[in-house]
């Protein structure tokens, strides 16, 4: 078995500022890797480098594609990378507005990936979109409504459906529950965890919320100043942190 995603020596700077430095890991099928650290620690830059949205200055990202075998994400032609990103990958943005088409209905949002890969039967597309709306716990009579009429939590669930409808194997998530009410967060966490398990997804999840990391991820990488300072099993990193920064981070969580 190969890792589904394998990064090594990733480095990226913006001008003088180092955004990430010498980051490497293997993500195995079915694993959810959490990347935690405070704002500016390089988490989101890393995620964008992994997903091919940013070009790192050093290092490689190898993806084990179902269609093409092992490919270097940054050596792929743009055509193929974009094809991968709407067939085998998903990307869940923190701000659902960035991941959705706000001007068209929920059904069209979910159906877009299907149409992009050749679906041309309106009734079938609509049926699939409706099923997915149900799977992400949105009432199916909201199918023809635009996401502008949805609450924040519903938009996030719609974004998840829009990403998962094409059956991706690898999902990148950037603070998927950031900016949502705590009660809404819980439902999305439960939804994501269920989907990750039933669809056997692999995922890289960026979050600054250690509670989210504990509930959703198997492994953690702790980043500080663009470097990985600690990694390991999620519960081990959180319950027995070794690095000084991780200890500080864990000790900073407010008890409930």
């Amino acid at each position: 078995m190969n890792p589904i995603l394998s990064a090594s020596g990733l480095g990226k700077r913006f001008g003088d500022r180092v955004a990430c430095r010498d980051v490497g890991f293997d993500l195995w099928p079915g694993e959810v890797l959490g990347v935690v650290g405070e704002s500016g620690s390089g988490k989101t830059t890393l995620l964008n480098c992994l997903a091919g949205r940013l070009h790192p200055e050093t290092g490689t990202v190898v993806y084990d594609s179902a269609a093409y075998g092992q490919v270097d994400v940054h050596d792929l032609s743009e055509a193929r990378r974009r094809l991968l990103s709407r067939t085998e990958w998903g990307f869940v943005n923190q701000d659902a507005r960035e991941g959705l088409r706000m001007g068209v209905s929920a059904g069209a949002n979910i159906g877009e990936r299907l149409m992009a890969i050749g679906a041309r039967h309106y009734g079938d597309i609509r049926r699939t979109a409706s099923e997915w709306l149900g799977r992400v716990e949105i009432e199916q009579d909201r199918l023809d409504d635009r996401p502008t009429t949805y609450s924040g939590g519903m938009r996030q669930r719609l974004q998840i459906a829009r990403n998962l409808v094409s059956g991706p194997r690898l999902v990148f998530m950037d603070e998927p529950t950031g900016g949502l009410d705590v009660s809404v967060q819980a439902r999305i966490l439960d939804l994501l965890r269920g989907l990750v398990e039933t669809l056997h997804l692999s995922a890289v999840l960026v979050t600054h919320d250690l509670g989210v990391a504990r509930l959703l991820t198997h492994r953690l990488m702790v980043m500080q100043g663009g470097r990985v300072v600690e990694e390991g099993l999620t519960d081990q990193v959180l319950d027995d942190p070794q690095d000084a920064y991780t200890q500080m981070l864990v000790a900073s969580i407010l008890p409930v």
Binding site: S183, A186, R187, L189, D190, R193, E197, R214, L215
Partner: peptide, 19 residues
Amino acid sequence: LRVIPRVPAVDVVAAPAIR
């Protein structure tokens, strides 16, 4: 007990076996 909030008890108990 450390579980995702708002999940029914029966599902909490069933989850490891389903996995």
